[in-house]
Design a protein around this nucleic acid. Structure first.
Lengths: 186, 186
DNA sequence: ACAGCCATGTAACTCGTTACATGATTAC
DNA sequence: GTAATCATGTAACGAGTTACATGGCTGT
């Protein structure tokens, strides 16, 4: 019906399908520990903007008035979300990967800069892995087929494997960069 | 000095560091076969906008006038690009992954929708792999350490491994989704 | 009392997109 | 001759960001 919301709206709406009611502030926190890894962490101001939009569209509703306002998804919101998932193609992921972008033009920079960048990326991945692993552990107990956090745990496992893959690729690339300049005397 | 261009400007500038002169149209094509995999494919209109901005900043210069205009990077442009790479942190990749986003809220949709989505993703990955592999093959012959396409080929190899990893994860997730509902009778 | 977190919002701005418009050159 | 590709741009718009502003509540 009233389709055509930006994907981030659906993303936030989706975070409200886990049975609880959240304030804008709490919704932002939930986005920070979930969406951030494979979508975006919207700015605080945008969370409120989206909540306003979703409310106007009747997809969420406030459960009290004044401050400390909590929002819950409506039946209409749940239907709309399902229609969106069933009726529109997901589309291919968009990756904005500044490390690969800079590696592409590696011949312009100092070799030392490139290597430092890759090492720093490995460090950041280590942190990200720890953060996501913590989230993943918090889902244990309700992650079996049919349980509430089944899908979030599948996503978390995917994310963990992705970060591990990236760390491996970064290390391999570092090694390949080291091979290079050494055998210039053959 | 005149820092603070959007990253996409630097990306396009970087595509002009491979020794040739391009029209806006050709630059867009180059972006389509390289940047698209780990950054973005800017719209045609934006390519021209960026070329204008880069020209105004003295980082690229036209080599003739009129239509069929070709642009080449200036010495200043090359310095600016290097300063940017050496002087500013790359930052962590941003992934906009609609497949994982939808999988997260898988409990809202039909199980069949989720599985169809994953199968379609595998298909799209197969296409992307073929496209990128073609690019990678075209770099052969100048991809050794010290040669012109060394870095682009490292990036392409990384991208290929990434797509393969995604395909594997999608297939594993499909398998895990199948396990689930079956043993509801134990 | 002061810091830090909880909570909500507005305003200005940038990036990047889509839609539109125009016309030259090349291929069949 | 006509379709596709090459080539260049303008205008309107939307999504999302940063900066700013406000104020309550909690712990020390």
């Amino acid at each position: 019906m009233g389709q055509e919301l930006p994907v981030t709206s659906y993303a936030l709406l989706g975070l409200l399908t886990f049975g609880d009611e959240l304030t804008g502030y709490e919704l932002k926190q939930r986005a920070d520990i979930t969406l951030r890894f494979y979508w975006v962490s919207p700015a605080m101001s945008q969370v409120y903007t989206e909540l306003r939009r979703l409310t106007d569209a009747g997809l969420v509703e406030p459960t009290a008035e004044g401050r400390g306002q909590r929002y819950r998804i409506t039946e209409r919101g749940r239907r709309e979300l399902k229609d969106w998932m069933d009726g529109t193609p997901a589309g291919f992921p968009v990756l904005k990967h500044p490390v690969l972008l800079r590696l592409l033009m590696g011949h312009v920079a100092d070799p030392a800069t490139i290597k430092a960048m890759l090492r720093e990326y490995v460090d950041e991945l280590t942190t990200a892995l720890a953060d996501l692993d913590e989230v993943r552990e918090s889902l244990r107990g309700a992650d079996a087929p049919g349980e509430a956090f089944r899908h979030p745990s599948l996503v978390a496992d995917w994310g963990l494997a992705y970060f591990e893959s990236e760390a491996r690729l970064a290390r391999e690339t570092l090694a390949r960069l080291d091979e290079g300049p050494l055998d210039k005397d053959l």
